[in-house]
Amino acid sequence: MKNTTIILKKQIKDTINNKAILIQFLLFPIMSAIMTFSIQTEGMPYDYFIKMFACMYIGMAPIVIASGIISEEKESGALRMLMYSNVKAKEYIAGIALYIVGGCFLGCVCMAVMASYSMTQMIVFLGVSLIGMLISVMIGSIIGICASSQMKAASWSIPVMIIFSFIPMIASFNETIRHIGFFFYTQQISEMIASLEPASFQSVNMLLLIVYFISSLALFIRVYKTHLIRF
């Protein structure tokens, strides 16, 4: 636990100087604030942009940040030095995940506050976002662990995050894409966030999220054991 806290503290310190990561955390909350406060047309829900950008945020930021951090530390040899200093791989991953989920969660809290949600809506919004973030962090970590360099990680994570984050938005304009998007976790999150009423959630939404969570966790554990455990 102590080492996880050290990794977390290190990441927080590094964020101040790492503009690429800082932008990932701030971009979507700021964008949704600008759009929400500047564009309000009749018939458009007040939280339209918040919900749209929240989905993109969940599907984009954790993937890019996790893959970026892990691949950078792997490439520079910093991760190896941590391991030789008796930081266990699971402590390292936990520290990184905690940092990313914590940062993105704060962003989502800001978005929820901006939308003036009721307590129930806020809990649903943050709960669903949290599940999405965890799945995204695992996907980002898998990319970061497998990629031999930061450059490779970026070239893998960009198409993955574009597919996951843009599908829900494009799906609202195209029926075919909406059918395809049904199999993406971000689409399920988008639909759940759209209603924010637990009673209106379909069991298939929940089931698909659980399947995504379990399969990404299983894949993550496999990649972790084969690639990271031997650093």
Binding site: N17, S76, A78, R80
Partner: peptide
């Protein structure tokens, strides 16, 4: 080691 493993921005 040959890989220095420094945190460049710190």
């Amino acid at each position: 080691l040959d890989e220095q493993g420094l945190y460049e921005r710190m």
